[in-house]
Amino acid sequence: MAQIPRREFLKAGTAALAGATLSALGLGSITASAEDGAAEKQVFVYTCPVCGKQFADFEQLRGHFTTKHKELDLPKTVTFSINEAEYDVFVEDHWTLREALIRAIGLTGNAKQMCDRGGCGSCTVLIDGKPALSCTTLAVECAGKHIETSEGIAADPEYRPLLEAYVRNDTAQCGYCTPAQFTMAKYILNKYDFAPTEEQIRLELSGNICRCGTYARHVKAIMEAAAEMKGGQ
């Protein structure tokens, strides 16, 4: 276990540091600003499941793996259909969808985990249109299924009224549970034909815990969006 003494470390030239930039952390918005009125699409980055190195396309990643990690078996390749696009992704068999979202896909809106597992709803995605907990769904199970995340819904012009209603009503306080509740909001709108009642919304959101107590704001935002979107249909 190599260790670098503090004094030496603080000087230049002694540390071999990773070269990734801040942008690799995903800082910045994929929804652009309110004035833009439309969201930007996120550029997909292919990430090595062993060392985390990132590539612009899957073939580069495959080439990297077969040369740099040739002692290891090639991981399973899963084709994810996420937010209207398809990606080939290396995943380990034991990875949950949540792990894949963080480590291989880079979409972390629905990769929150307030509880230890399955108790808070903060990781809720839509799989083939139905809510599912990404922390208790294996990534390999998702092959060939359509996954929707908060990033995709926010970028969908059709759901712009929902996004606007959410930010207009301060539905987020600390914001940690908000993307999953926002994802549930799309499900609720569709399930109840864009005319849900308060009781229906509260029932559907009852598996999504918000420690900041923002529930009433979600009810209001969903009903406002429903009114606007129903009228537009």
Partner: peptide
């Protein structure tokens, strides 16, 4: 915060 673009400490993953 709504779209999920906001990165919290549990979201961060970085090479190495």
């Amino acid at each position: 915060m709504t779209s999920g673009a906001a990165k919290y400490p549990t979201d961060l993953y970085r090479e190495g």
